[in-house]
């Protein structure tokens, strides 16, 4: 907290060079001096708290790198490519966890994107005014439900339901389809990569929907009305006017959802099965980076084990940071474009 004081002093010396041209009553002058000082204190106090955000980010990076170093030194690049994860022999590889993270997020995107876009289209183009608010609120409340609730619901309700009804069906349908049969090979465990992906798909709905809805609303009414005037149907307006116009923003929204899905921890931990292996079938148990950390960190004995888990954390941080940063950049670009065009 010394920083603001130093900055204030620096600024004061700079300001005192401007000589007062009008002679003021000394008491008033004193007051002005005092208020100027307070102004600067206020400015630099707020600045130093804003800088704290950067300090936090720096701290996260430094501490993760520091904690991950022993494992990274020991395994080197192999850490990323080895599938083995053996705490007893202290051999650790992140490949299965990386695969699980990407696979669950992919499934989440496949089921989440169409539904989110559908909801956004319904809310912006279709729903009567009185229905917009309650449905919009309900979808946003989905975002408020903590991930542990999705986890407990997924484990006790959703996974058994899938195991009984959906997974046997999938196995039967795809049994004779070449290429896809091993993808949906049995037995139906209930928990596994597929279930985790579906739950993530539900969890990203509100995030993608809210961004999609916002960018849909930036489309100038004039454009849409022109298309309607030419005789386009509502769907044609959405497909040929609204979506092309908002493309960059939509990609940004999807990537925001992807960032959430990649880093989601508790919901996945409940239903993924925590198995460090890559199965050809997506119905089989697996693990993700975040689920491995959540499941094993408390029990990790030995420096290398802990360090390997922190290295997983570092990996997750790098992946999600990149995705989220790209998402943010796209949304900023979208904003700028609409600003320039209107």
């Amino acid at each position: 907290m010394l920083l603001p004081v130093v900055l204030v002093l620096l600024r004061k010396t700079r300001m005192s060079q401007h000589a007062e041209t009008v002679a003021l009553h000394p008491e008033i002058q004193q007051r002005i001096q005092k208020q100027r000082l307070l102004d600067n204190v206020f400015r630099y106090v707020t600045l130093s708290f804003a800088l704290l955000v950067l300090v936090i980010l720096g701290g996260v990076i430094v501490s993760l790198v520091d904690g991950a170093l022993p494992a990274l030194k020991k395994f080197g690049f192999d850490f990323l490519t080895t599938e083995r994860w053996n705490p007893v022999k202290e051999v650790f590889g992140a490949r299965a966890a990386i695969y699980g993270t990407l696979m669950t997020s992919l499934i989440a995107m496949i089921v989440g994107i169409p539904v989110s876009f559908g909801i956004a289209i319904f809310l912006t183009e279709l729903a009567p005014e009185w229905l917009k608010r309650p449905i919009g609120t309900a979808i946003e409340l989905l975002a408020g439900i903590p991930s542990i609730i999705y986890g407990i619901w997924g484990l006790f309700v959703f996974a058994p339901f899938l195991q009984r009804n959906i997974q046997p069906l999938l196995i039967a349908i795809f049994a004779d389809v070449p290429g896809l049969s091993s993808f949906f090979a049995g037995p139906p465990f209930g928990i596994g990569v597929f279930t985790a992906g579906l739950i993530l798909g539900i969890m990203v709905l509100p995030f993608i929907t809210s961004v999609t809805r916002d960018v849909f609303e930036t489309v100038p009414a004039l454009l849409k009305e022109s298309a309607y005037g030419l005789g386009a149907t509502t769907w044609e307006v959405v497909w040929q006017i609204v979506i092309p116009y908002t493309r960059v923003g939509l990609v940004g929204g999807v990537m925001l959802g992807l960032g959430r899905a990649l880093g989601e921890t508790m919901a996945v931990t409940f239903v993924i099965g925590n198995a460090h292996r890559i199965s050809p079938s997506i119905l089989a148990p697996g693990t993700t980076i975040s689920a491995s950390i959540a499941n094993e960190f408390q029990e990790a004995v030995g420096d290398i084990y802990t360090s390997a888990l922190v290295a997983l954390g570092l990996l997750l941080f790098v992946i999600t940071f990149t995705v989220l940063a790209l998402a943010k950049l796209m949304l900023i670009r979208m904003q700028r474009n609409t600003g320039a065009r209107t």
């Binding site: 955000v53 950067l54 701290g59 501490s63 880093g263 950390i293 954390g313 997750l316 989220l324």
Partner: peptide, 27 residues
């Protein structure tokens, strides 16, 4: 500087909370 802070903050807003857990563990 403010744009950078705004940007980093938005990323931290959606960053996985388990990372924060690891950070405080180390810290």
């Amino acid at each position: 500087l403010a744009s950078l802070i705004r940007f980093i903050n938005d990323v931290l807003l959606s960053a996985p909370s388990i990372i924060i857990g690891l950070f405080v563990y180390e810290l």
